[in-house]
């Protein structure tokens, strides 16, 4: 018999500290697998943000830099501008990217920085125990929206992929989830497409992963996935919001057509 699935070399052998059933672990793995499969691990630099995955640099086998809360896209800009042939990605949660780091992500995309942002949307601040995030759903109970998010004084969820895809500098934006085999394989395709967009220098790329947070949602891991499918997907429809039809085979010609 042959091995058809085994742990990837793209990850170190340090066990994840994430809660049972948290999708961060799946996302880490498909990014790591993609780096190995695409042969780019040796020239990738990851930028960790602040949140549950503040130390994801201990899990990815590539070089990595830890950034201040919300500033990963700026750190990545500084890195990529100097290492033009390297692959640079940020790994950020919704508090990091959509709250304190909004300016950084918007301007990195607007500048068309040739970096990739992996954005994990789990509708709460995980690390600091479940506060409301910009992506918290209306009516969703969190430690800072204990009566359920009320638009009248806590405003509305932010659809980041739709927002970023409006920026010309953004070449590829897709929202995926990890609730089953098909979705995980699709998410992995999105990860690799984002890396390809970066390699081809087409501009900024971002993959938004809807992700569970069993601990702070107060739900069993499987039940949390149901809630994600039932409640989060309607607010955050899956799909490609920019760069659906990038034809990597003949990029040169594609530009001529558009030009």
């Amino acid at each position: 018999m042959a091995v058809v699935f085994e742990p990837t070399k793209g990850l170190t052998d340090k066990p994840f500290h994430y809660c049972p059933g948290c999708h961060h672990g799946i996302i880490h793995r498909i990014i790591a697998e993609s780096m190995v499969e695409m042969g780019i691990l040796e020239k990738t630099v990851a930028v960790a943000s602040v949140g549950c995955t503040y130390n994801c640099y201990e899990y990815f086998s590539c070089d990595a830099v830890q950034a201040a809360h919300g500033r990963a896209p700026a750190v990545a800009t500084g890195i990529k501008r100097n290492l033009k042939d390297n692959i640079v990605f940020t790994y950020q949660g919704d508090g990091d990217l959509a709250s304190i780091g909004t300016a950084e992500i918007v301007h990195a995309a607007a500048r068309g920085e040739k970096i990739t942002a992996f954005f994990v949307n789990n509708a709460v601040y995980g690390m600091t125990s479940g506060q409301m995030a910009p992506t918290t759903l209306l009516g969703q109970v969190t430690t800072t929206s204990p009566f359920g998010r009320d638009a009248s004084y806590q405003g509305y969820p932010i659809n980041v992929s739709e927002l970023i895809s409006q920026l010309t500098g953004a070449a590829y934006v897709e929202r995926v989830c990890l609730t089953d085999f098909k979705n995980i394989q699709n998410a992995k395709k999105a990860v690799q497409k984002a890396f390809k967009v970066q390699q081809a220098g087409l501009g900024f790329s971002m993959v938004e992963f809807l992700s569970t947070c069993p601990t702070n949602w107060g739900k069993e891991p499987v039940e949390a996935m149901e809630w994600l499918k039932e409640k989060m997907i309607p607010q955050y429809p899956l799909g490609c919001y920019k760069g659906q039809d990038i034809d990597f085979a003949n990029l040169g010609k594609a530009e001529e057509k558009e030009g």
Partner: peptide
Amino acid sequence: NMVYGAAAAG
């Protein structure tokens, strides 16, 4: 933070 990134890259 861009400074931080460039410096981290050496």
